[in-house]
Write a protein that binds this DNA or RNA. Structure first.
Lengths: 203, 203
DNA sequence: CGTTTTTTTGACCCATCAGCAAAAAAAGGG
DNA sequence: CCCTTTTTTTGCTGATGGGTCAAAAAAACG
């Protein structure tokens, strides 16, 4: 009795792929930040007119949130994977090297979208900043817990403060992003990573 | 024969203090970044009308450069002082603690103006970003040289890479700025500093 | 007192911003 | 073939962006 695919297949079909266009939008947000990106930038990159964008994604802010989801899901996968490494040192190494890859990948240099957004948001669109910060805080908590576990397992010395160490590692990751924005080369960033790992606490 | 003070004392005197208004402008730029600051924000904070601003400082960009000079001269003095510390460890300690003070001082939280600007500048006003990056690079060179000297003097181990260590310290400072922007408390940042100093290489 | 020099005032310009309304176009259901 | 549903197209809106001009106002000089 039921038709196949009777969910929303009426009417004129959409002429663009929603996910594909979202990926384009992500790249623009990533390059320019939330406020630095205009609707013209977006529609040009997505090959979409303005009303199409509104119909498909709501408005600029909700488009950004969807792009943020995509970013977390795809580009930040290495952070979730890194947490599974067997030792605190390997966690740090995976995160730092993943960050360098993320930030110097492909052809152009970008910083981390989260850092860019949390730093570059004016008082308007404060809700966007808060959203980004909230997601970052969740990651920070997970990292702190990972270091607490590492201490129990003995691969971090007794005297280290897991939360402090988590803030140090966060700062290194954020610094990688900032320095990438400032034009640091991949070699520069790898030097940062090597020096950071060289002073990492040994059990 | 010569009059006293015959240099530009004719005509209607200015009704505001240029330096004072510049300090107000600096605070606004510091809070909102270069692009995030509008002329309305500036004129409101400086208690000046638009043409007065234009006459006194040129335009938005040249006002920002003057504000940047002031920022470097006053708010970044601790960095120059820190370089004079006798050991690499003390240099790092002075910079990190000074940065926390700088960033959590007075009543409101700010990140570092240099970080904010270098991260939050779109393709327009790229010259501003380049200016900020250029000034940062000079500081980075000085820090690298300081660590090379420290190595010669034996207060850093033989195996450390001065440039890498400089990038690590830079990253920690940038991370402090980013985390302050994200709402970290003074205690949070002091924890970061303590943990950072705890893993600092000993001679 | 009048002239000169400078600042202030208020309005204005043009571009861009995010967002939207109405009509045209394309598909399926009857 | 018409009707409904959905998307596209075109063009618009009100607000805000940085920047500027002409005229009024204020002070110092002769």
């Amino acid at each position: 009795m039921n038709k196949v695919q009777n969910f929303a297949c009426r009417g004129r079909p959409r002429e663009f792929c929603v996910d594909e266009a979202l990926a384009k939008a992500l790249r623009v947000f990533w390059e320019k930040g939330y406020e630095g990106t205009s609707l013209n930038d977006l529609t040009e990159a997505m090959h979409i007119t303005r009303p199409s964008l509104y119909a498909a994604y709501g408005n600029k802010e909700s488009l950004f949130r969807k792009a943020l989801d995509l970013y977390e899901r795809e580009k930040l996968a290495y952070l979730r994977e890194a947490l599974k490494q067997p030792t605190a040192r390997k966690v740090a190494e995976a995160m730092l090297k993943g960050s360098v890859n993320n930030v110097t990948g492909e052809n152009e240099l970008h910083g981390c979208l989260g850092v860019i957004t949390s730093v570059a948001c004016g008082p308007e669109s404060q809700s966007v900043r808060e959203e980004v910060v909230k997601r970052g805080d969740a990651a920070k908590r997970a990292l702190t817990e990972r270091f607490m576990k590492a201490k129990e397992e003995g691969d971090l010395p007794k005297h280290v403060d897991p939360e402090g160490l988590m803030r140090v590692l966060s700062a290194l990751l954020q610094g990688i992003s900032v320095q990438a924005n400032q034009g640091a080369s991949r070699e520069d960033l790898e030097r940062l990573v090597d020096a950071g790992l060289a002073i990492w606490p040994s059990p």
